[in-house]
Write a protein that binds this DNA or RNA. Structure first.
Lengths: 240, 240
DNA sequence: GAGTGGTCTAGACCACGGT
DNA sequence: CCGTGGTCTAGACCACTCC
């Protein structure tokens, strides 16, 4: 007897949707039909479909069925990036770009009132303050300004920072990263942006502000990533 | 006997988390404890907790419990906006700003090859092409460039466009909006941006590109919303 | 080993869509 | 009216965390 688990069903259904197998009436088979085909419970089927919904491939309508959304080259790109986020792949600031990292600044400092307002770390907490430039295709494309709570993420070195701090956190410190909350905005370029980034004729940067939490619920990181305009692209799906 | 449904449980738990009632050990009660308290099945409890997870208020860890994430003024803002997206409230381009809408252009045209590449509408399809300026606090803050498939969304008039096209779609046409896929990016300002927006010293705009689908899975809209830098703010949560 | 959340099953009833 | 997905219950087993 072959084991067919929820994750397998998801993979199979996804493949069928992408290959256009369900395009005839723009519908998936009913849940009952899928239960029979895979010989599993309704729970497993619904879970697999929910995952497809989250990726923006299909949409469930009560009383009607599961509708397949039109696929075009333009929207496929968005689907792809969202599959990565909801799946295991992380496109975190630390590992999405591994071309070349240049450390522009590395200090250990104590949080003062002003830094508290920005980072939401408590006043008096020791933090690592790191500035790194990401070089992509011979362009300085991203400036990362990191603050790590040194009580939670201790003993960061410039060597670690020149690689992946997230790898260090996960593999060496055995700490679990739970959630990253982000805000995306556009800001007028500052002195430091002009110094480190190849802005060209542009006078603005994309700013991705991140607050990262571990599985104890504690915030261990505050980061600003300043992007040059060309490299700032984010995708999202709104469900109604 | 009082009915306690999943949605009520969510509301109650959320209130407790926000009021800091579960902050003592940074944990929620176990699922079994909540099942007893509310006298419902595990399904209902898990569904309510899942909603809190999606809003970034808590995080479930297998074998450990449901952890409450640290709340700071800076991150509360992000939580709020995500509660709206995942809930019913829509902050769609059409209705989040109702200060003042100025119609800059209104035409009905046929999709050619170039427009097809951009919008992913098929060549030959008739579309409404509309440009509208959103004025906020005496500033021209957003330029909306809409293309609606006229076969799916017929008979748009300048009068409708000066109000809310989404209201027209939902209330008058009785069409269901299923999904909106978006891409956020930064672009160098073009001639048309300078004409219609109060860019000030900035020479870039935030571009929110939207593809909207109805519950038949058909794309009925392509929109570019050009934001002046101050008004371009988006939030997101990444779960690991 | 005890306790926790994650997965899964089997079944019931409800709400909505289309005929 | 029938067929569909949405909600909910009751119970089982597994995987992980922590003592």
């Amino acid at each position: 007897m072959v084991e067919t688990t929820n994750s397998d069903i998801y993979t199979i259904l996804k493949e069928r949707v992408l290959s256009g197998q369900y395009n005839i009436k723009m519908r998936l088979p009913t849940e009952d039909a899928l239960i029979e085909e895979f010989n599993v419970s309704r729970y497993a089927i619904r879970k697999a479909i929910k995952q497809l919904v989250n990726e923006g491939l299909v949409y469930s309508v009560k009383g009607k069925g599961v509708v397949v959304l039109e696929q075009t080259p333009q929207t496929k790109e968005i689907n792809l990036s969202l599959a990565k986020i909801n799946g295991l792949q992380s496109l975190n600031s630390d590992q999405k770009i591994d071309r070349k990292t240049i450390i522009a600044d590395f200090q250990q400092i104590i949080v003062d009132e002003k830094l508290h307002q920005k980072t939401s770390f408590s006043v008096g907490v020791p933090v690592y303050a790191i500035k790194r430039v990401r070089r992509i295709n011979t362009k300085n494309a991203v400036l990362d300004i990191n603050y790590f709570n040194a009580q939670i993420v201790p003993e960061i070195t410039p060597e670690i920072a020149s690689g992946s701090i997230y790898d260090y956190i996960k593999k060496d410190l055995q700490m679990k990263i739970a959630v990253v909350k982000r805000q995306l905005r556009i800001e007028h370029a500052t002195q430091i942006d002009y110094e480190h980034l190849n802005l060209g004729i542009n006078n603005c940067v994309g700013n991705m502000v991140s607050f990262a939490f571990n599985d104890d619920g504690k915030q261990f990181e505050y980061t600003e990533s300043h992007f040059i305009p060309d490299n700032f692209i984010f995708n999202q799906i709104i469900k109604f």
